[in-house]
């Protein structure tokens, strides 16, 4: 539904459907934060230059600051609040705490959602700019620190928690590999 500047949409966020009437200009980030009070996704730059607003759309990581809310209708949206829906933290979140993968915490939601998406991308065999031979089957290639750093580079962290984040992601990847 749509008149000139507003639309009635339904957003499915963390397995809950929300009916909203939004100004078409509303980004997904603003809809999450202002309309749904899901303030875990952060506005670090509002320009796709920092990654703090990263969420998952149908399991794929995107920056919600450059995604229009109207354009996100029909997707399954997962935010940081949806990573532990029943309150029990998932292994990646626990690894962030145990290995101190954050300091101020402002980029953390984005780092977490990005890491979830990134691990799925690697598991699907996607190469990265750090992959030596892109023509080879990347799913066979082990995820190492160099790969994680390249794949996570869309998430800036000014506190400099990078080394701990990489360790937390690798530890989680190892656990997933064991259980897969």
């Amino acid at each position: 539904m749509n008149d000139d500047g507003r639309s009635d949409i339904s957003l499915r966020v963390n397995d809950v459907t929300h009916g909203l009437n939004v100004d078409n200009r509303t980004t997904l980030l603003d809809a999450l934060r202002d309309a749904l009070d899901l303030t875990g996704s952060k506005k670090g730059c509002d320009r796709g230059q920092c990654g703090a607003c990263t969420v998952l759309l149908d399991g794929r990581r995107v920056v919600s600051c450059l995604t229009l809310a109207v354009a996100a209708e029909g997707t399954e949206i997962t935010t940081v609040e949806g990573l532990a829906p029943d309150g029990e933290l998932r292994p990646l979140q626990r690894a962030f705490i145990q290995l101190d993968g954050f300091q101020c915490g402002y980029c953390t939601s984005g780092q977490l959602c990005s890491a979830v998406g990134m691990l799925a991308e690697h598991a699907a065999g996607w190469p990265s700019a750090a992959t030596v031979d892109v023509s080879a089957d990347a799913s066979a290639q082990e995820l190492d620190a160099v790969e994680v750093r390249e794949r996570m580079s869309g998430n800036l962290c000014r506190c400099g928690a990078y080394p701990s984040i990489v360790r937390a992601v690798l530890e989680t990847a190892d656990q997933q590999a064991v259980t897969r």
Binding site: R33, D37, L38, T39, G40, S41, K42, K43, T79, V80, E81, L83, A84, L89, Q93, F96, I97, Q98, D100, F102, G105, Y106, T108, S109, L112
Partner: peptide, 21 residues
């Protein structure tokens, strides 16, 4: 010891200055 506010920060529950409804 890990940070006391860790669980809030990794689950998006920690409210920063622009986050309070």
């Amino acid at each position: 010891r890990p940070r006391l506010e860790g669980p809030e920060k990794v689950s998006g529950r920690a409210r920063y200055a622009a986050d309070h409804p």
